[in-house]
Simulated scan of single mutants.
Amino acid sequence: MRAALFSHVPEPEPDPRGWREQSVVLTFDAAQWKSAAERDGGTANTLYCALTADLLRRCPLIDNIPPVLTPAVRILRESDQPDANSFTRVPIVVQREWLDSHDLTTLRAVSKAAFAAVTTVGSGVLSQPRRMPPDLLDVLPDGVVHRLLETVPITVGMCSNMGVLDDFVAPQLAEFAPALHMKRAVVQGIDVPRTERQPVALATWLSESGGTMHWALEALKPEMAHTAAELADLAKKVARSWGLHPTRIYTGDTNP
């Protein structure tokens, strides 16, 4: 264990001629987003999960099978720990017919049941090595935990709802907040060999500020999108199929 804690194997440099992860941020009118969610029997968060699943199912790696989402779920061990930051990821299998019929009612019920079934930190997929006690997992460095995780044998989509951004976030930065968070949360310069060693094809973040919803997307496998423009086009088509029309779209390495 000591060797694992203090040793570091450097990651190989990505091939500059090869594929890189692709980034896109779409913004929407928050009132339109919430109205569309209510119309189809869900909440703003349920609609977010549906859009992510609908986009993920365009990935050829999961052709003809239900897309699986792994939302981040916050776990508070004690009722008097409002500042606790423990969370896990819960697998949600989204049936394609729910997406075809815009059935947010069923998706919401299934999601709530999955969240309710999680009782300990690290009990979800992608969160805990098998037979690793949560108490031990919590004290290990992130780099060590990452080496202990086992590869999930399916391609999944990762999604995190950041909620309403704090007032201290400057308005000119708010729409980029999920993208800035995203840049800290994923491997930068990921190339094809690395994508084959991890299960996530699509990572997304959602946030709200100033009457606007910000949907940040990161394609982590080339099968999901070869270019940022391709990812943006797919996301725009999916959004429009749910009655949503992006007000702005940023692609690639656009900075505030």
Score class of each variant (00 low, 15 high):
residue 176 F to T: 02
residue 142 D to P: 07
residue 77 R to P: 05
residue 228 A to T: 05
residue 143 G to F: 07
residue 154 I to P: 01
residue 172 Q to I: 14
residue 207 S to L: 03
residue 131 R to E: 15
residue 181 H to N: 10
residue 57 R to A: 08
residue 220 L to S: 04
residue 185 A to P: 04
residue 19 W to D: 01
residue 162 M to N: 05
residue 139 V to C: 07
residue 45 N to G: 03
residue 149 L to W: 14
residue 208 E to D: 09
residue 195 T to P: 01
residue 146 H to T: 06
residue 50 A to V: 00
residue 253 D to A: 14
residue 116 A to D: 12
residue 77 R to K: 14
residue 50 A to D: 00
residue 77 R to Q: 15
residue 228 A to K: 01
residue 97 E to R: 06
residue 91 P to T: 08
residue 112 K to M: 04
residue 238 V to I: 07
residue 216 A to M: 03
residue 144 V to S: 02
residue 37 A to L: 03
residue 156 V to I: 15
residue 30 A to C: 13
residue 252 G to N: 01
residue 101 S to M: 10
residue 113 A to P: 03
residue 109 A to Y: 03
residue 254 T to F: 10
residue 226 H to V: 12
residue 52 T to G: 01
residue 88 T to F: 09
residue 105 T to H: 01
residue 5 L to N: 05
residue 159 C to K: 00
residue 240 R to M: 09
residue 224 M to V: 10
residue 114 A to E: 07
residue 73 V to R: 04
residue 196 E to W: 12
residue 137 L to C: 14
residue 33 W to M: 00
residue 32 Q to M: 13
residue 224 M to N: 05
residue 106 T to Y: 03
residue 12 P to H: 09
residue 245 H to E: 12
residue 209 S to E: 08
residue 48 Y to I: 00
residue 23 S to Y: 15
residue 199 P to G: 07
residue 180 L to G: 04
residue 31 A to H: 08
residue 253 D to V: 13
residue 127 S to I: 09
residue 39 R to Q: 08
residue 27 T to G: 08
residue 152 V to M: 07
residue 15 D to I: 15
residue 146 H to M: 14
residue 45 N to P: 01
residue 137 L to P: 11
residue 224 M to R: 02
residue 195 T to E: 03
residue 124 G to D: 11
residue 171 P to S: 07
residue 125 V to K: 05
residue 153 P to M: 04
residue 224 M to G: 02
residue 139 V to F: 08
residue 110 V to M: 05
residue 205 W to N: 01
residue 151 T to Y: 15
residue 108 R to A: 00
residue 194 R to G: 09
residue 134 P to H: 02
residue 49 C to H: 14
residue 167 D to A: 14
residue 239 A to T: 04
residue 132 M to A: 10
residue 21 E to I: 04
residue 134 P to C: 04
residue 112 K to H: 07
residue 228 A to G: 04
residue 141 P to H: 02
residue 146 H to W: 15
residue 189 G to V: 13
residue 32 Q to A: 14
residue 138 D to G: 15
residue 54 D to Q: 04
residue 139 V to M: 10
residue 212 T to I: 09
residue 14 P to L: 13
residue 238 V to H: 02
residue 250 Y to Q: 11
residue 218 E to M: 11
residue 218 E to H: 15
residue 244 L to G: 01
residue 237 K to Y: 06
residue 127 S to C: 08
residue 123 S to Q: 11
residue 117 A to M: 05
residue 83 D to H: 11
residue 115 F to T: 04
residue 126 L to G: 06
residue 245 H to M: 13
residue 33 W to E: 00
residue 251 T to L: 14
residue 186 V to F: 11
residue 170 A to K: 13
residue 5 L to S: 05
residue 235 A to W: 07
residue 170 A to L: 11
